[in-house]
Design a protein around this nucleic acid. Structure first.
Lengths: 295, 295
DNA sequence: CGTTTGCTTGATGAGATTCAACACTTGTGG
DNA sequence: CCACAAGTGTTGAATCTCATCAAGCAAACG
């Protein structure tokens, strides 16, 4: 693996260089080389939250970073597949386009997520990845990926694990789409987004949505109006606070257990709730601490 | 790989034997040995529709078949993961169980499909696989799977491809769940089921549903009543014929392009339609050949 | 032969979409 | 600099789709 292909830095689909081939400068985030940032295998593994192969300390393979501006596409539907992408920073969406040109949002990848897996099958991308903010993305040529997997058994195992993780995520998504009410979908969306942010070291309670109401609606199988209305309702009930795209989660347990919103006339603010009244022995029809009926 | 583990045939989670270790009898479907059926790598690859590694002609690894009766579980949620399953014959469902014990159907695997991938991540199954008919299933211990992938590069590549295929399938499922009407969901369900049957050499126009209306509804995010009503409506319009679980697809193009059913009073039978009246230059609001307004 | 399970069909209503109007922000070009 | 357009978000009213509740029937089963 020390004789990997050498690519000029101005090539958009570059791949791998030997660390010895160019003068490189180490820093915390990777190596800067000819104006581009590069990462080694250890950094990539940490990003993907998989164990670093023990024997790879002397690995000389480097992976190029590429920057995308908001709105740019990382890959498009039908494009030939030859590289995987790992998000180093920024926020994206992946979409499917149906026969009428409508976008269907599939996921909102962020730091540490792997993009492009859908292209492995039949060598063409089935979906499109669009940057929602400026992004820094690491290129992992599929050939290099395969070669590394062959060299390091643990790495290959980890890649299967990452794909399996993604599959499970989509299964849960399917379950959520077909079983939950609109309110429950929005509530889950907010809490899982918060969890993802806090896993990355950011605040899980207060964050900025990087996507439009329309994109959220597409992701959840709702219209943008329903999303907007639901956020307003949560806000009015004191479960969250909304100001444009700035969100604060004020009652995460309520959001997590919410299944269905009570009729509007029965709603009261969370601040007025009497926790002692909330039974814990039965399956509540509504979220345990969402609301208390007026009686 | 010629010194694989030897397991007695009465072990339920058996794995791999050397062909030389036992007297085996070859036949068209595999090798019969001590009352059990075994398959070699070539047969497994053909079943999965992936290329057989060229160098594997002399491969001695055999994979045990296990039979499941209708209703039996191949694996359950939370169960330790150590083997993958390949459907050789029969019909199954995979389900998720939510926090209230409700089943959420995720897929209906049949011949040639791979089960258990969801367990690779964190070594526990996230879903449950239940036989809907008597099934014959090939066991592929994950350790053997990994070892084979290490030995045959093409095989490893093919396994990534199979997982990618599964991922794309789920993505399309997500798009369908969140974007289509109830009628369109049922129509798609029928046509894709027909396509799968015809790929297996059976009739794609006339087949038996192996699952209940309830299971179809769970899979599509609908209630069983809606599924029943929709099938009845399709039947009345002449697009399909339904007799209990026996289905015949009479107008596949109509089913494929259907987006939304016209109001009941405007429906006419397909047999009465005047094809010449159907414009082809605009996106039709309803399926191109579903119905013609009365005017 | 009663019981269970699956399927169909009708009546009704809740929940989500659709259509529409308006406010707010952002970017553009004169 | 402002006018204007385009994109985004909120909210209301009307509509419609689909779920729910309920009843009845057929097939399967012990």
């Amino acid at each position: 693996m020390t004789t990997a292909a050498i690519t000029k830095s101005n090539s958009s689909l570059s791949s791998v260089i030997s660390k010895n081939a160019f003068p490189v400068v180490s820093n915390e985030a990777g190596w800067r080389c000819h104006g581009n940032l590069w990462s080694n295998l250890r950094e990539v593994c940490e990003l993907l939250r998989i164990p670093t192969p023990a024997a790879s300390a002397d690995e000389e393979v480097l992976f190029q970073h590429v920057r995308y501006k908001a709105g740019q596409r990382v890959h498009t539907i039908g494009q030939d597949f030859d590289t995987l992408y790992i998000v180093n920073s920024g926020f994206l969406k992946t979409v499917l386009i149906d026969e009428y040109g409508n976008e269907q949002v599939l996921s909102f990848p962020m730091k540490g997520d792997l993009l492009g897996i859908d292209g492995i099958h039949n060598q063409h991308h089935a979906s499109e990845a669009v940057a929602l903010s400026d992004c820094d993305i690491i290129l992992m040529p599929y050939k290099t990926f395969s070669a590394l997997g062959r060299t390091y058994a643990e790495l290959e195992q980890a890649m299967f694990s990452v794909m399996s993780r993604e599959l499970v995520r989509e299964q849960i998504m399917i379950g959520m789409l077909s079983a939950l009410s609109a309110e429950a979908k929005v509530a889950r969306f907010l809490t899982t987004l918060g969890e993802r942010f806090s896993q990355l070291g950011y605040s899980g309670k207060s964050f900025n949505l990087r996507m439009t109401r329309h994109e959220i609606g597409s992701y959840l199988g709702l219209t943008l109006e329903t999303v907007s209305r639901t956020l307003s309702a949560f806000n009015e009930m004191g479960m969250i606070s909304v100001d444009q795209r700035q969100i604060a989660l004020l009652d995460v347990p309520a959001l997590k257990t919410l299944r269905r919103l009570p009729p509007a006339k029965a709603r009261i603010k969370v601040s007025e709730k009497v926790s002692a009244l909330v039974g814990k022995n039965l399956l509540p029809q509504w979220g345990k601490e969402v609301a208390v009926a007026l009686n």
